[in-house]
Design a protein around this nucleic acid. Structure first.
Length: 299
DNA sequence: GGCCAGGTGGCCA
DNA sequence: TGGCCACATGGC
């Protein structure tokens, strides 16, 4: 099979090792990691590509693409590069964030420990919503178990070099399932309803990542999303942070954020919401990155 | 055994 | 608006 190789230059404040470590900690069947690379299948307009990502000696990102569907064109090559730039959030300029963070009581420790980390995204909006809804209220290890069951019950299994990879279930399929069919994997009936509801909205193109990007106003985006049953302020901000990439998305109610602030600030208790608003006022415009680095302390 | 987990909607005053 | 409560399940 033909393999195409592309290079992407990396910003100085990007550490492949730190980002690989992060991905390793969140491996979910959709992609795989080893000591030096990340691999996954991606689908573009129904065409399948297998990509391998690693770093070269002169600090460039190398992307090898196997042309599984025999349909590789310059157009797909561009789309694959955009996919990678987006997944690793390569187009954001983080210098101003690091300047703020270096003198911030709560951020100086995490940015020193994880210097070079990026907000590794959740590429698909449906995947982002499902992951957020699964994570509501329950502990993260159980949420991971549910995600694993969700992917392996309803997703598509692919094999490459004898190893399993999964494609995330399509919103169309999930929208068509019965409550009992969804309930069997062990999530609450409410989570089943929320997930099926969002699957319908996405399948009908009533919600899309592009539309949310175009709004370009976090308050409007949150207002629109929280009108949907099952999407509260936390879920809306989580999806805007991890997928749509609003730099000022801020899931202020997040328990993990509270624990991380307690740890980073050596507090004897978790801070109150009012205290967090006070703390975060120094991060204006970079709340998403502040949150992502703080999460890395506790997850 | 009880409480807390990467919350949310529904009910009640 | 603000205060409860249920929700599925696992870990401590």
């Amino acid at each position: 099979m033909t393999v195409y190789k592309q290079l992407l230059s990396l910003p100085e404040n990007f550490s492949f090792r730190i980002n690989l470590d992060y991905l390793k900690s969140t491996e979910d069947g959709l992609f795989r990691t080893d000591q030096e690379s990340i691999t996954r299948f991606i689908v573009l307009d129904g065409n399948l590509f297998f990509i391998k990502i690693y770093v070269s000696n002169n600090n460039r990102l190398v992307i090898e693409t196997e042309d599984v569907s025999q349909s590789y064109t310059k157009q797909f090559e561009r789309q694959i590069m955009l996919y990678i730039r987006d997944w690793f959030d390569l187009d954001i300029h983080l210098e101003p964030f690091y300047i703020i963070a270096k003198q911030d009581e709560y951020l100086k420790m995490p940015i020193s420990k994880f210097y070079g980390l990026r907000n590794i995204g959740i590429p698909g909006i449906f995947e982002a919503f499902v992951w957020a809804i699964l994570g509501q209220q329950i502990n993260l290890s159980f949420a991971s178990t549910l995600k694993d069951r969700f992917i392996k019950n309803y997703g598509k299994r692919l094999i490459h070099n004898g190893e399993d990879y999964w494609l995330f279930p399509s919103p169309r399929l999930i929208a068509s399932l019965s409550m009992d069919e969804l309930f069997k994997i062990g999530m609450s009936r409410r989570k089943c309803e929320y997930i099926r509801g969002i699957a319908r909205l996405i399948a009908n193109n009533q919600i899309s990542r592009e539309k949310l990007v175009q709004l370009s106003d976090i308050n409007l985006a949150v207002k629109q999303l929280t009108a949907i049953k099952g999407i509260g302020p936390w879920t809306a901000n989580y999806v805007l942070l991890r997928c749509v990439r609003y730099p000022n998305a801020f899931p202020i109610n997040d328990v993990g954020l509270h624990n991380a602030l307690k740890l980073a600030g050596s507090l004897d208790r978790k801070p109150s919401i009012d205290e967090i608003k006070q703390i975060a006022s120094a991060w204006e415009g970079y709340e998403s990155y502040a949150t992502f680095f703080l999460w890395r302390l506790v997850y």
